[in-house]
Design a protein around this nucleic acid. Structure first.
Length: 150
DNA sequence: GCCAACGTTGGC
DNA sequence: GCCAACGTTGGC
């Protein structure tokens, strides 16, 4: 079992959208490090669902990986925003996992509160200048976060 | 809206 | 292979 954090802007795709739709394919990631982390994901891995670019940035809920990484279809659509002309069906550059809803937190664990929490010291999310949209989370950090939000 | 930090691109 | 320029992310 591995633990991850995935970011989305709530205006783009929110925890409530995931709650309503049950699952979603995590398409549109165009960062190699984030892609590599998605390729390392296995079904059942737990995902902290983070909202960025909003007044209250933080972790809003829990999701899980429901399907391992397969080629991201949006890279093949020449009219789409996520088109990448370097990709071919035989050699796709970009991958996407499927993520399923687990639960929405009663209260989000806000970034400003996470920064104050000594037990989250060293967490990648909290490091200066980090902006990776898919990132691993340690078991200790993951369990601590769940404890704060249950 | 500002801007620091970062990843990527492309000229050399 | 270096690195300046550029575009993007994301907190504030």
């Amino acid at each position: 079992m591995q633990y991850w954090l995935m970011k989305t802007e709530p205006e783009e795709y929110s925890i409530k959208d995931l709650k309503r739709l049950k699952t979603t394919r995590w398409e549109g990631v165009r960062n190699f490090q984030a892609r590599n982390f998605m390729q390392a994901m296995r079904a059942g891995d737990q995902v902290l669902f983070y909202h960025s670019s909003t007044e209250e940035t933080g972790i809003y809920g829990l999701a899980q990986v429901t399907e391992i990484a397969t080629p991201d279809k949006t890279q093949f659509d020449p009219k789409g925003h996520y088109y990448d002309k370097r990709s071919t069906k035989a050699k796709p550059l970009w991958m996407a996992v499927e993520v399923g809803f687990v639960r929405e937190f009663n209260k989000p664990f806000l970034l400003r509160d996470m920064r104050k929490d000594k037990r989250l010291a060293g967490m990648r999310l909290l490091q200066k200048g980090q902006r990776l949209s898919v990132q691993p989370v340690s078991k200790a950090h993951f369990e601590h976060i769940l404890k704060q939000t249950s």
